[in-house]
Design a protein around this nucleic acid. Structure first.
Lengths: 351, 351
DNA sequence: CAGATAATCGAAAACGTTTGCAATAGGCCA
DNA sequence: TGGCCTATTGCAAACGTTTTCGATTATCTG
């Protein structure tokens, strides 16, 4: 139904190829005929058919974004950064929610490949196995991964680009902060064990305790959702009421923990301190406002598609690029120093 | 680079059209040759090129979703519902953030039309003017609008489908609830005046006061973002400290209000009550948990693309379909009855 | 003014599918 | 055996662009 290039060519009395050139402001065309063609095109309300164009040029001008769940504010923010960057480059973003489901994720990827997207940014739910890696490489489309573990990233076999927060450092400052506050009975409510970001945070977190000869905190892995964290925490409270601090794998997990604590009449931070990760906007309005580790989410998404576009442009060379996004502690009011902390503080500082 | 249909046809020793038919499990093809073709296709890792297919079939298998900002948890939830429904139908969703910017919104729509999406669901930032309506209609692609005002919806000239929450009823129960609690000095911190959902909520809210001969609450319109609400509220507090209740246009606005109140040492609900709209997940973990009006967000998004798909399937008939999503009050702890409420209550009841 | 050069334009192939129609091959009935 | 029917397959056009390669015209240059 919409006007085609042939229509405007006929209407303008020129050949179809001249019409094309006129509208794509290419060289080698008379300025008057161009004006004329453009005017006719406007009159006919002509809109170039991107799918036809994509067929011949081989580029689809669209990118895929596969994340676990857009309802997680972390991903929403990240998606926004990605979308802005894509739009600025004249691309569109197709949104895919994998729900941490490996099979669903693969289905989505196939889907995107069939659609001939120019590239994909995804936070892989699991470290990709050899077979999957091969399939992705074989597809020949640029891919940038989010939240891959530092182990994967440094593996020599690894051939994908990535952008990740400095989760190792994040886990480390989380541990040091809580230790510095004098906490001894700490538990880490983490996300999925298989998820690079969470495993990195957890291992760096634990490493600090090990290196300082301190008791190893309990770690409970699980889904990184509000509901899952809520359940985990409730269960936790059933078995252990001596906890003085929780390091949550991310803010949403922290929210779930807080809810469970509140319901059990446990005060934050008087009874237990809680430390999040991500610095989602809502951390400001919880009660108390959540102390957390800030991670630039918007920038992460933006950087991911920038790398992607870069890979797409210089088509041949596929040297993977890795970008690490800095993190830092944001102190609000959900953590408190417990008695005897001063002593503890000094001991750590000496090392 | 990826294998084409021609490749698998050649490799299988059949014609390109037979290969096509074999893969599309059409009728009129020998079961053995089909098996053979399928096997060859699998071996070559063949993936049908959707853009080529889209060119000939005329359908793109993709839908557009244009909302104001995915970072708003309301839209995130809605987007998730939309995406699930689209995926179930084998479509993909391209995400567009309009930022309440009419021009940006129109750019996105043009973009989507150029991409020949099968349909668009959008929450229009402003009531579409005649010209825009015409352009959309002329494009000939099914459109489902979110959050249109009830006035627009009932206009005889209106030719688009819509799915909206029952904002009129929502505004009404908000007013009655707050009045019932005995509040007299109420302000309504709304979203953009031009936005159907907010204008409906506001007008129904005010109508209750008018009809009961009560003083008209102050209404302040603005962006429906955390930051904007925060600013509005701070300003509000500078001029009027007698407020006893705030009805926020949505939960995110409520959060912004709460932040401003907290910063000014104003207690919720002891000093001022606050009532939200949407029942976003985070309302559970604010302090106090937010009393709000629930609106099924996921279902809204889902319903929108279902209507869209329905319109697409029965191509010709374009009778607009309207779906209204019910809302209801969820009482938590951010509103309190003020002294003298009983008297006030009786007075209302008498009228 | 002839020839050369540059500017502008048209013809046609190509991208990877789907699909209407024609062609072929058996099978069946008379 | 011959004609007809059906099941299967091949041929080719079409979808709406971009782009290469010639062709045509206009503009110089000497």
């Amino acid at each position: 139904m919409p006007a085609t290039l042939k229509d405007v060519a006929r209407e303008a009395g020129v050949n179809i190829s001249t019409a094309s050139r006129a509208l794509n402001n290419a060289f080698g065309i008379n300025v008057d005929t161009r004006k004329h063609v453009i005017k006719v095109a406007a009159r006919l309300n002509y809109r170039p058919n991107q799918v036809a164009r994509g067929l011949v040029t081989g580029r689809s001008n669209s990118l895929g974004l596969v994340i676990s769940d857009i309802r997680n504010p972390f991903f929403a923010e990240l998606a926004r950064g990605a979308e802005d960057a894509a739009f600025n480059a004249g691309c569109d973003l197709v949104l895919c929610n994998s729900d941490q489901n490996a099979e669903k994720q693969m289905r989505y990827v196939e889907f995107l490949l069939a659609k001939r997207v120019g590239g994909i940014v995804m936070n892989s739910v699991t470290p990709l196995d050899e077979d999957q890696q091969d399939r992705l490489r074989a597809a020949g489309v640029p891919i940038v991964l989010l939240n891959v573990s530092s182990a994967d990233r440094h593996s020599p076999a690894w051939r994908f680009s990535s952008v990740v927060a400095d989760n190792l450092y994040g886990g480390e400052i989380a541990a040091k902060y809580l230790i510095g506050l004098g906490h001894k009975n700490i538990v880490h409510v983490a996300g999925p064990r298989t998820h690079g970001a969470f495993s990195d945070r957890a291992s760096a977190f634990l490493k600090v305790f090990r290196e300082n000869g301190l008791a190893k905190p309990k770690v409970v892995f699980g889904e990184h959702t509000f509901g899952a964290a809520y359940q985990s925490t409730k269960q936790l409270l059933g078995t252990d009421r001596n906890i003085t601090a929780i390091f949550a794998g991310n803010d949403v997990i922290a929210f779930g923990c807080m809810r469970a604590l509140m319901e059990n009449g446990i005060r934050i931070p008087e009874d237990v301190s809680i430390l999040g990760f991500d610095n989602v906007e809502m951390t400001q309005i919880t009660s108390p406002p959540l102390t957390t580790i800030d991670q630039p989410k918007y920038e992460t998404g933006k950087a991911a598609v920038e790398i992607l576009l870069n890979m797409i442009s210089k088509d041949g060379v596929r040297e993977p690029e890795h970008r690490i996004i800095g993190v830092h502690l944001i102190e609000r009011q959900s953590c408190r120093k417990i008695s005897g902390a001063a002593v503890q503080d000094r001991r750590i500082a000496k090392r």
